[in-house]
Design a protein around this nucleic acid. Structure first.
Length: 197
DNA sequence: CCCGGGATGATCT
DNA sequence: GATCATCCCGGGG
């Protein structure tokens, strides 16, 4: 699902983002996942219905979000790492306090969206697409890509200390909005980038 | 432009 | 008390 979400849009009020970088986090089989130790108050959303969001506080100051995604009885999610701003530039720049680097990182993306912890667990999809029982629809709306995306690259995930070898990070090749220090078109890391479809 | 260091405070053991 | 799915800033090339 993580590569499939590239090109999808996420709307919050007047702000619309286009996802260009994602990371998959599995459940019990993935030591790097917040879900790995089992359900806690913080991560419980990842054990809930798919299509909802898992919003968490990172390093005490940043809100990041996952699209909850897993097999029945499992847990997991897709971390949204970077996006392009399609609509709401003024508001995003105001929230970010700058004119560039608006959403190229999971914390920056969260700030651009104006994420709030109380939105944790809300559905990202129309009620008609959520299986029963329907979770409450939150203020965030996820919509499929309207056009096919270009080539997709993959590589190791960022900022983790366990399972660092798994290539579970995906981004749109050629996007200038991928998070910092990551292989974009200008600086591919040798060996780890692979073209996809 | 790239890189390294340090802030930062909730979360869980 | 350690860890952290991060960010910003400043310095050097």
């Amino acid at each position: 699902v993580a590569p499939d979400l590239l090109g999808w849009t996420l709307r919050q009020g007047e702000v619309v983002l286009r996802l260009v970088e994602t990371e998959a986090y599995l459940g019990g089989a993935d030591p790097a996942s917040h879900a790995y130790p089992g359900p806690t108050q913080r991560n419980r959303s990842m054990f809930g219905p798919v299509g909802c969001c898992y919003i968490y506080l990172s390093y005490g100051m940043h809100l990041c979000m996952n699209v909850v995604c897993h097999e029945p009885g499992e847990a997991g999610g897709v971390l949204l790492r970077a996006a392009e701003v399609l609509e709401g530039h003024d508001l995003v720049q105001q929230r970010r306090g700058r004119a560039s680097d608006l959403a190229n990182g999971p914390g920056r993306l969260g700030q651009a969206l104006g994420l709030r912890l109380e939105w944790d667990g809300g559905s990202l999809l129309p009620a008609s697409l959520s299986g029963p029982p329907p979770p409450p629809v939150g203020p965030l709306e996820l919509q499929p890509a309207k056009e096919p995306v270009g080539p997709i690259a993959k590589g190791p995930r960022v900022g983790i200390s366990k399972a660092i070898e798994l290539p579970l990070r995906f981004w749109l090749t050629g996007s200038r909005e991928v998070s910092r220090g990551r292989p974009g078109p200008s600086r591919p890391n040798k060996g780890e980038e692979q073209a996809g479809s």
